[in-house]
Amino acid sequence: MTPPPPFSYTYSPNMPELLLGLKCSVAISTYQTGKVVLFSAKDENQLIQLPRNFDKPMGLALENGKLAIATRDELIITTNAPGMARNYPANPNTYDSLFIPRVTYHTGTLDLHDITYSNKGLVGVNTLFSCLSTFDSDFSFKNFWKPHFITELKPEDRCHLNGLAIDKEGNPKYVTALGHGDQGREWKDKMLEGGILMDVESNSIIGDKLPVPHSPRIYNDGLWMLLSATGEVVKVNVADGKYDVVTKLNGFVRGMDRIGDYLFVATSKLRPNSSLFKEAPVAKNSVVCGISVIYIPTGQPCGHILYQTSVEELFDLKILPGMMRPNVLNHAKQMHKSSVITEQEVFWAQPEKEENKESVTS
């Protein structure tokens, strides 16, 4: 048997129709393969994926036509230019949206996890320095908030702060971490049962002994969260920190977004030689990597996309509402440098003809 080609995937028959009906596409980040991948419906029967290379992409943030991507040592802000999409030189009359790099913050290595737009601007979970950070042109980051048990900002990943939820007013509201120690990587000691949920405003722990919490998200009906070690999708009662399990998936769940009554959850395989997760309840069943769609009224999975090759670990997932065939440019092929966007018009630079080029000698 010939093995499937790299980045092969399968999907449930209803996925193309579901994305068409919801009028959206899906973006995922996979730091393991160094890509941001966009999934769209080609028609009612076919999906299409568009992978783009980024250096260890992690958190994704979307707001007002901007898609931010946290990478190994940069925070890249891309902006949607629909007028450029239609005339994209490599594939014209194909895309309805095109995210083009506009700003890059050279942050240095911070191990940024979740990032999100807030009323404070773009906020990132700065895992290495155990704090929430904002960004500008003066520093690698500015400390916006840190847990009360973190005594100083050092690049020691003391509690593995990883997730951030924004409330309806745009305030950073809840964070998740894998522990509450104040020493370098102390969270590893009891990682599978030492996770916490914190209220940012009160700087207090409202839930503890959580099995590897990730991806807290506030929706109209409350706070949702993923428990990676058990594969559970949960709703949290913030008054007492207790939670109800909505559904359980066969995978290490991390990365979640919602549109209407549908919840999209990213699942990852666990590394066979992982010493950190080998005792996790989900370890034996964590054999698929991809996207699961949950129909919220029933709590049941109703669709999926599963990778067969190449991709084993995902970090984040974002719904791209109203975008049926999006594209995103990176820095690798320099295509973004051919774009010129003004407040009134957009242009793709024309390649210079050889006879118009000046000869330069030294």
Rank of each mutant, 00 (worst) to 15 (best):
D240L: 07
T361Q: 14
Y95C: 04
F347V: 12
P57H: 06
L18R: 07
F99C: 03
A27K: 01
G83Q: 01
T104H: 02
K278D: 15
W348T: 04
L18C: 02
P5H: 03
A70L: 13
A61P: 01
P213N: 06
V123N: 11
A81V: 08
T342W: 02
S29T: 07
P211M: 10
I100Y: 06
L164A: 05
Y117A: 05
E358K: 14
T30H: 06
T107A: 02
K269S: 08
G83V: 00
L210K: 10
W348Y: 08
E352K: 13
T109W: 13
L192C: 12
P4Y: 02
I206R: 10
L132F: 09
P101Y: 03
Y243M: 00
N119M: 07
F135Y: 12
C159Y: 04
D138V: 07
S339V: 13
E313S: 10
L132H: 04
K142P: 01
G108N: 03
L38R: 02
S8R: 00
V246D: 01
R271G: 10
G231R: 01
E186Q: 15
N53K: 10
N330H: 05
I150V: 11
P82D: 03
P6T: 04
W348Q: 06
H304A: 08
S274T: 08
K357Q: 15
S292E: 13
I319H: 05
D96R: 02
E358Q: 14
N91L: 13
N53R: 11
L314P: 00
W187V: 04
K146M: 09
F277I: 09
F252H: 13
K35T: 15
L112M: 11
D208I: 10
T127P: 07
Y307P: 01
I341A: 08
R254M: 11
R185I: 04
L314S: 02
R72H: 15
S29R: 02
V346T: 15
D261Q: 03
G290E: 12
D261K: 02
E193I: 13
P155L: 06
Q300L: 13
L122I: 12
S97Y: 03
F54E: 15
F149W: 15
L329P: 05
S292F: 04
A349W: 11
M335L: 14
S204C: 08
D167K: 01
M256V: 09
T127G: 07
D43P: 13
K42T: 14
